[in-house]
């Protein structure tokens, strides 16, 4: 591969990795608190993309007819709000009644929720791919071409994750979240209402996934289908495990790493068909040597 190709793929990789990371933090936060994998999380991302498409299909936000930054911000905020509501509903209706059920049952419910949302999208909007009718100017940065959309997406994703890190590390809600994830009974003895913390965690994770979906549809122009969230969901899950499930910086690192490796392999003339295979082999290799993930600590099973 030529150097410029590598640099180009690096940029593409960081961009898709940022999206994996945005989804992965949702997986990892929910796992940290409930020790469950919310397999419907990829579908929340899909719904975010659908909202972006809906918002531009009739130009409700005035972003198609003329470029409007405020309109775009509003559109993404709408997607986040819709997804946040969806996340809270999923927790309330599907997972909360199973709070004391065996984990396998919760896991199967999560998979069922994922199918339910996919098929709801299919019934409501059909299977044909939907594209947000926006195009982005490409700029040349020393031999690398980057679309303005890609750039905005990257900056926005990184800001979201920085914001999340601040929330988790500096606020009382963030402390409560970490307390529940470390020892939910001790957290209860501090007066932390853990049901509310759990709902809040779902809401934040879903809002970030929604932002990721909306931004992918808007800035990358990816066609939205009912299964739009499946592969990114799986990849984000891999990212979360790669970085150490339950660990937020780990999920970000895992996402970026996976995105970059995929792009580098995908840009190679002979290796490119093995893109996904190599990504998953990497996961297996990391887990063989560091079962708790790159940044994860060895965790003990809770009783």
């Amino acid at each position: 591969m030529e150097l410029s190709t590598i640099a180009q793929q690096l940029v593409n990789g960081i961009q898709s990795g940022a999206i994996y990371a945005l989804i992965a933090v949702g997986y990892t936060m929910v796992y940290g608190i409930l020790r469950m994998i919310n397999f419907a999380h990829g579908e929340v991302y899909m719904v975010g993309a659908l909202v972006a498409w809906l918002g531009t299909s009739r130009d409700w936000y005035g972003v198609v007819s003329h470029s409007s930054t405020g309109g775009l911000v509003l559109l993404i905020a709408t997607a986040m709000l819709v997804c946040m509501t969806l996340g809270v509903l999923i927790e309330r209706l599907a997972y909360r009644p199973l709070r004391h059920a065996p984990r396998l049952i919760v896991l199967i419910t999560a998979i069922g929720m994922s199918f339910l949302l996919q098929n709801l999208a299919l019934i409501l909007f059909g299977a044909d791919p939907k594209t947000v009718p926006l195009t982005w100017r490409t700029v040349q940065l020393g031999g690398i071409s980057v679309s303005l959309g890609q750039l905005v997406l990257l900056i926005a994703s990184l800001s979201f994750m920085a914001g999340l890190q601040l929330l988790v590390k500096r606020t009382q809600f963030g402390r409560a979240m970490r307390a529940v994830s470390e020892d939910f009974q001790a957290a209860a003895l501090m007066g932390v209402p853990y049901d509310r913390v759990i709902v809040g965690t779902f809401a934040i994770g879903a809002a970030l996934a929604g932002a990721g979906g909306a931004m992918t549809a808007i800035f990358v122009g990816a066609p939205v289908t009912p299964t739009f969230g499946f592969m990114p969901g799986v990849k984000a899950f891999v990212s979360a495990v790669l970085g150490g499930i339950g660990n937020i910086p780990g999920a970000v690192l895992g996402g970026l790493l996976l995105g970059v490796i995929e792009a580098l392999v995908g840009g190679h003339p002979t290796l490119s068909p093995f893109r996904d295979a190599i990504a998953f082999c990497l996961l297996i290799a990391v887990l063989l040597f560091r079962p708790a993930g790159l940044l994860g600590r060895a965790v003990q099973e809770k009783v």
Binding site: Q172, R175, A176, R178, A179, E182, Q185, A186, L189
Partner: peptide, 26 residues
């Protein structure tokens, strides 16, 4: 306020953060 058996402090957090969590309800 209940100080549980085995102390159950938040080992991953700083002493300061533990104290702040103690004040969560007040």
């Amino acid at each position: 306020i209940h100080v549980p058996e085995g102390r159950r402090i938040f080992a991953e957090m700083s002493v300061y953060e533990n104290l702040l969590l103690g004040a969560y309800s007040q």
